[in-house]
């Protein structure tokens, strides 16, 4: 596997050092990494699931409104950050791989490298009790 861009490597290192749940996507929208605090939301350990392709992760967590209406993929902050290269923020519910439904607040932003190229996106999450 080719080496990732240094900006992605550094972002993963930073995410690994924070208590904030963080997801990291590449420019194609594939889920490259989630940190240990995010494992509690995802419901699985990153080492167990590894990287997840774009078409799979967004639906895997069953994002929905409070009444259960599915959130469209294009309305998910992380995919807004990737596809429109804009920051985004919203609340929604997910069902983790452990089957537990959780209410989240999520902020995402595009990760623009030193060359000006969008290399991916970062999603930060807060679980709302």
């Amino acid at each position: 596997m080719a080496q990732r861009a240094i900006e992605l490597i550094l972002m993963r290192q930073l995410a690994s050092s924070l208590a904030q749940p963080i997801l990291l996507l590449d420019a194609d929208g594939d889920l490259l990494f989630f940190n240990e605090p995010a494992e509690a939301l995802v419901g699985r350990r990153f080492d167990d699931v590894g990287e997840i392709r774009r078409g799979e992760w967004a639906m895997l967590f069953k994002p929905s409104e409070e009444d259960g209406t599915p959130v469209k993929r294009e309305d998910l902050p992380l995919l807004i950050a990737i596809d429109r290269q804009e920051p985004a923020h919203r609340n929604y519910w997910i069902q983790g791989l452990d089957g537990v439904r959780r209410k989240l607040e999520s902020t995402a932003f595009p990760l623009v490298g030193q060359s000006g190229e969008c290399l991916g996106a970062v999603g930060l999450f807060w679980e709302i009790d």
């Binding site: 596997m1 080719a2 080496q3 990732r4 240094i6 490597i9 550094l10 993963r12």
Partner: peptide
């Protein structure tokens, strides 16, 4: 290697 700075 994919996550090792300087690997390539």
């Amino acid at each position: 290697p994919a996550w090792l700075s300087g690997y390539e």
